[in-house]
């Protein structure tokens, strides 16, 4: 693919994003130099353990950071304009019309005192030139689309009368009301049963198919990304460790952290005799994070340089990059380079 063709397909491009929280304990460097691209109609998965900076990245893109959080540097180019430079008023327009977000806990994101129908209509009227009657019609259509049975009747219900899965579907309906170009879904299925999760994932797949919506899906569930994403970004300690197509990550990962994640979960062919191989230790504290590679304290391959200097990203091939010293041309040859190829035989 040549450069110009590619640019045309880019919807969002985040460059060198750095976000910190200035707390009593010091500066929490939650996002440290993140580069991220989302193409039109693409589902990108962002994975990593708790505290790796997934949500803060999303909140930075939408400029929804709460005090004491602050974007330190970087730009967020959406359809050619830098969101980092937009005012709150302009952002509000973008958030309602172009980029929507779904959060993990549907109960806290819905107002318990207002009926489901009114909440959807409110969002529609705020962002679209429709009257009440038209908004109502649209709200019912949306509820039908997300498969709420008896949509017209259920409009009058309050959020507590809905199950967790139904509330999440309502959130999706609200997020879709403006036909966004980009949907950022932060752990949309984490609180749900697998059965409900598969319904929501199916819904998101349809979205992509029908409306060419781009989706940034944040999750810690590797199964979920394997299911619906085409590209995966693996985060740790506020940085991107590895990025590639689903196949790059699952079949030929070139990063010790990604491999550690993959080996921590039981693979389909494993029986009780085979053992999980967890990553040792615990995730880092991001107040005054250590110099060098953030994964170094837990990495079985860590070398001297890893604790002093942070590696750059190395491209294994187009679209597949890994931030690890082992990929440096002067690094000692290591069995790790082929390890990712052998996980799924």
């Amino acid at each position: 693919m040549n450069q110009e063709m590619k640019d045309d397909s880019i919807l969002l491009k985040v460059n060198h994003l750095q976000t910190s929280f200035f707390t009593h304990f010091g500066e929490v460097k939650a996002v440290r130099d993140v580069d991220l691209t989302i193409n039109k109609g693409e589902v990108v998965g962002v994975v990593g353990e708790s505290g790796s900076g997934k949500s803060v990245t999303a909140m930075s893109i939408l400029k929804l950071l709460q005090h004491p959080g602050k974007i330190i540097s970087g730009n967020i180019i959406y359809k050619g304009q830098d969101l980092a430079q937009r005012s709150e008023k302009e952002m509000r327009k973008i958030r309602g019309n172009e980029i929507s977000m779904i959060f993990q806990d549907p109960m806290t994101s819905l107002n318990p005192l207002i009926t489901v129908g009114e909440q959807i209509m409110e969002t529609i009227i705020e962002h679209q030139p429709l009257n009440k009657k038209q908004a109502k019609e649209k709200a019912i259509n949306l509820l039908n689309m997300v498969k709420i049975p008896d949509a017209e009747k259920r409009m009058k219900d309050y959020p507590f009368e809905f199950s967790g899965g139904m509330r999440q579907r309502v959130m999706i309906a609200i997020a879709l009301s403006c036909e966004p170009d980009l949907l950022i879904a932060d752990e949309p299925t984490t609180a749900l049963d697998v059965t409900t999760q598969s319904q929501i994932l199916k819904l998101m797949k349809n979205l992509k198919g029908e409306f060419n919506t781009s989706i940034m899906l944040i999750t810690h569930d590797l199964g979920v990304v394997a299911d619906i994403c085409s590209r995966i970004v693996v985060m740790y300690g506020g940085m991107i460790m590895e990025e590639g197509s689903v196949e790059d990550i699952f079949y030929r990962s070139k990063h010790p952290y990604t491999l550690g994640l993959l080996k921590s979960v039981p693979r389909p062919d494993m029986d009780q005799q085979s053992r999980l191989e967890p990553i040792k230790g615990t995730p880092p504290n991001l107040v005054n994070p250590p110099e060098g590679c953030p994964f170094a304290p837990r990495c079985d391959y860590a070398m001297k340089i890893c604790t002093t200097t942070c590696p750059e990203h190395t491209y294994i091939q187009e679209g597949h990059r890994s931030m690890c010293w082992l990929l440096h041309e002067e690094a000692p040859k290591s069995d790790f380079l082929s390890e990712g190829d052998e996980l799924y035989e």
Binding site: V194, Q199, G223, D227, E247, V265, R267
Partner: peptide, 18 residues
């Protein structure tokens, strides 16, 4: 309904889903 960890493995038929 369990998302399968192996992206290329055969996906279950849609109509079994609840």
């Amino acid at each position: 309904s369990v998302p399968f960890l192996d992206p290329q493995a055969a996906k279950p038929e849609e109509d079994i889903l609840l």
